[in-house]
Design a protein around this nucleic acid. Structure first.
Length: 500
RNA sequence: GGUAGCGUGGCCGAGUGGCUAGGCAGAGCUCUGCAAAAGCUCGUACAGCGGUUCGAAUCCGCUCGCUACCUCCA
């Protein structure tokens, strides 16, 4: 009998400590998880895809491990200030004026766009997707609580968090490794910020100027909530004052997540999050993506190829595969060459998945091949190991590729399956399918509902071939190709696959 | 300048103190009417410079480079 491999438990890299820690939920089997979602004021771009896909995999994996996950991802639909000035124009109302629309129209339009492309990436919807505008009352309550705690003050209808006061007892900068005094030294002198007592203070409620479109009444006058507050309020509302996982992009670490911690400490006296997870950023051809650099790619463009940076269109599953091919804490560089490689890798994986699903174990085992058995178990072990090691999806894909080789070989000669035990076969099949489909979320892109039609055509193909009618043979191949499929001539028959 | 992350073969991208990652591209072979698919074979890389060690790409230090953030640009 094979010695059971020891798979270490799930460890996650916690930004708060800078270390990989064993993941232990506060109230097993429940896991509470919050991820910062998009601000819905323009088209979703490739930078939005990474956190959406990665944290989707995190959620799927935790569920696979048997946890009961509540996944909350917000939609920011309350505009926040733009640029360096204090003139209260926010991004959503600016876009609204630009397009002559109501702010809520903008919000709904781009929320729909976000859902469309993120759905296409096979990202499961979060269990709760709260919107900031639906939680104004709760945010006002929090402002009051923070004021009651003596950690915020009002100035001209705005309320600011008193960072200096907070820092007397707590460490503002605990997450991002910053020290308040050092932050101060680097603070720029900005005009019009005189209503703050201290440059590092941040708004938790903002007075709305008369032309500001989005506004709510509050004890401090008409205004809108500060940028950081919504996440504190909505995460704790649905997950409790202390919850397990908070995710988001590295760019949000400071100040956004830092402020969340400060607000929660002030309002609830709790450090709200046990494990902070931050994904790294995406670059394009080595450079940062920005509108001014002209390399800004929306997901829609990626899917249809309508962007001059792109040599062709890349399917959502290709993009998903590509994102998962890198560890989430590494920067990920978009290039045509890399996407092309991901495209082939994905199709290879999926073709193998199809073959595996059709394989069945022979009537009885033959002479077992211990080396082969060990290899297959090794790959399966590594898949679990990789995933448990801070969600190393790149490792998982690499090991799945190893299994692809084995599966393809078995498929070519099914009788060789007798060289492994039924248990090994079952483990290979279950591991491959669970990790590919259920955890990494890499399904068949276009599920063929006309399998019968395809099989029929293949029969004609085989017949034509037997009669050496090569013109017909080539024609059938062309039909397949135009449908994105290929015909495979095997030793013992014909089959089809997705074109690579 | 500060903080955080990262620097691996032609490209992408994992990883461990000494034992094959993997994918893409390329070469050869098998198969084939021709192909494709698939299988097999082929690369000896780890930014640079020091140090620790019997031995480091893997640990430590420094340097260089890239990316993000540094107060209201999710």
């Amino acid at each position: 009998m094979r010695k059971e491999a020891v798979i270490p438990p799930l460890k996650v890299h916690n930004t708060l400590t800078g270390q990989k820690e064993i993941f232990e939920p506060l109230h097993p089997p429940f896991v509470g998880m919050y991820v910062c979602g998009p601000t819905v004021y323009n088209l979703p771009h490739i930078g939005n895809a990474r956190p959406a896909i990665f944290f989707d995999v995190v959620k799927r994996y935790l569920a696979y491990l048997g946890y009961q996950v509540r996944y909350v991802r917000n939609i920011t639909d309350v505009g926040h200030l733009l640029g360096d000035t204090n003139e209260g124009e926010d991004r959503i109302s600016r876009q609204a004026k630009l397009q002559q629309l109501e702010p809520m129209e903008i919000v709904h339009l781009y929320t729909r766009k976000y859902h469309e492309v993120i759905d296409a990436l096979n990202v499961q919807r979060p269990d709760i997707e709260p919107v900031a505008s639906g939680h104004i009352l709760e945010q006002i309550e929090w402002v009051q609580r923070i004021m009651d705690a003596g950690l915020a003050y009002e100035a001209n209808g705005s309320v600011y968090f008193d960072v200096r006061r907070y820092n007397e007892k707590e460490h503002y900068g605990i997450l991002s490794g910053r020290v308040l005094d050092e932050l101060l030294e680097n603070t720029r002198d900005l005009e019009g910020q005189s209503e703050k007592r201290y440059p590092a203070d941040f708004a938790i409620w903002k007075n709305a100027s008369p032309e500001h479109l989005m506004r709510w009444s509050s004890p401090w006058g008409n205004g809108f909530p500060g940028w950081h507050l919504e996440c504190s309020v909505m995460s704790t509302k649905y997950l409790g004052e202390i919850f397990d996982i908070h995710g988001g992009g590295m760019d949000l670490m400071f100040p956004h997540h830092e402020c969340e911690i400060a607000q929660s400490k002030a309002a609830t006296d709790h450090n709200p999050v046990r494990y902070w997870l931050h994904n790294n950023m995406i670059t394009i051809n080595g450079a940062k993506m920005s509108k001014s650099a002209g390399n800004f790619i929306t997901l829609e463009e990626l899917f249809n190829g309508q962007n001059q940076v792109l040599e062709r269109a890349y399917s959502p599953m290709t993009v998903r595969f590509f994102v998962l091919q890198a560890h989430y804490r590494s920067t990920l560089d978009f290039s045509n060459e890399a996407l092309l490689a991901a495209r082939k890798g994905y199709k290879r994986l999926i073709n193998s998945l199809r073959l595996l699903q059709k394989l069945s174990y022979p009537a009885s085992p033959g002479n077992l091949n211990p080396k082969l058995e060990e290899q297959i178990h090794g790959f399966c072990d590594n898949i679990h190991r990789g995933m448990n090691d801070d969600f190393n999806t790149a490792m998982v894909l690499g090991q799945l590729a190893n299994l692809v080789k084995k599966i393809n070989a078995f498929s070519l000669a099914p009788e060789t399956l007798a060289e492994i035990s039924p248990e090994t076969f079952a483990r290979m099949r279950d591991t491959f399918i669970h990790f590919t489909v259920d955890i990494l979320g890499l399904g068949e892109e276009k599920v063929n509902e006309n399998e019968g039609l395809i099989e029929g055509l293949l029969t004609l193909y085989a017949a034509a071939k037997a009669q050496k009618q090569y013109e017909t043979v080539d024609k059938i191949r062309e039909y397949f190709k135009s449908a994105g499929l290929i015909v495979k001539d095997l030793k013992n028959g014909v089959d089809w696959a997705y074109e690579e």
